[in-house]
């Protein structure tokens, strides 16, 4: 069974995010970029499936600029067998990404797709769900446990107030939550080998996908600076402040 994993290039979570001075976007020039942490968990899960003899091949796919090759190489250093970059200057909107994945899923006859539940840059939490809808395949989102059994996969999902386990017929789409696994560190020899693993570059057009712009980014603002706290004299005062000032109750 082939497993497809999504790999998105995002700002490194250790880096302090800065907004461009004209508020048009986040300033990404010369910032350290990394694999989206949820995607890293997806890669780890796929590799574990391969190590367990369940997956035969792990293909890492990224939709993004040519710089995303770096993250695909990282995925291959971790253990993905090959990679596909769908090169696009801007079209990493969820629906376009989902369409690209749908095509690749079909072309590669994939048994299981593992994606991060969301990326830490745009926090959309959409691609997995859209991909399921487009391909009419079952989905198990926010996975904290994945067990493939023959023609199906059991996915334990983290939901409000507990866990829900669903059994999905393959091919299926799984999106990862934080507790699914703890990604490994790449080994040095594998980083070297990753340089020689195949990385194919395609365009939306090659895949027969028409990338459309559905979202327009109007403005990006830094969150308001945190205000200093105040000491309240009593519980009553606290309740009153929560009602009148914070307007949260």
């Amino acid at each position: 069974m082939k497993v497809l994993v999504g790999v998105k290039r995002v700002i490194d979570y250790n880096v302090k995010v800065r907004v461009k001075s004209d508020n048009t976007d986040v300033d990404l020039s010369n910032t350290k970029m990394a694999i989206n942490p949820f995607c890293e968990i997806a890669v780890e899960e796929a590799i574990r499936l391969k190590e367990a003899g369940v997956a035969t091949e792990v293909i890492a796919v990224s939709v993004g600029t040519s710089a995303s090759q770096e993250q695909l190489r990282t995925a291959m250093a971790l253990g993905a067998d090959r990679a596909i970059l769908v090169e696009s200057e801007d079209g990493a909107e969820p629906l376009n990404v989902a369409k690209a994945f749908a095509k690749i899923m079909e072309q590669e006859e994939v048994g299981l797709v593992i994606l991060g539940k969301q990326s830490i840059d745009s926090d959309n939490n959409q691609v997995g769900q859209m991909l399921a809808a487009l391909t009419k395949r079952p989905q198990g989102t926010f996975a904290s446990k994945v067990a493939v059994d023959g023609n199906s996969v059991s996915v334990t999902r983290e939901i409000d107030g507990g866990l829900r386990t669903v059994k999905l017929e393959l091919p299926a789409i799984v999106t990862t939550d934080l507790r699914l696994n703890e990604p490994r560190f790449a080994k040095l020899p594998d980083i070297m080998k990753a340089k020689r693993k195949p990385l194919e570059t395609k365009t939306f057009a090659d895949l027969g996908v028409e990338a459309k712009q559905h979202i327009q980014l109007d403005k990006v603002e830094a969150p308001a600076a945190r205000q200093g706290g105040v000491k309240v004299g009593s519980v009553d005062e606290l309740i009153q402040k929560l009602k009148d000032e914070a307007k949260v109750i």
Partner: peptide, 14 residues
């Protein structure tokens, strides 16, 4: 240099 950067990145994680 690309390889250097990839290795620096992974070594930092460790």
């Amino acid at each position: 240099l690309d390889l250097a950067n990839a290795i620096i990145d992974e070594a930092n994680k460790f």
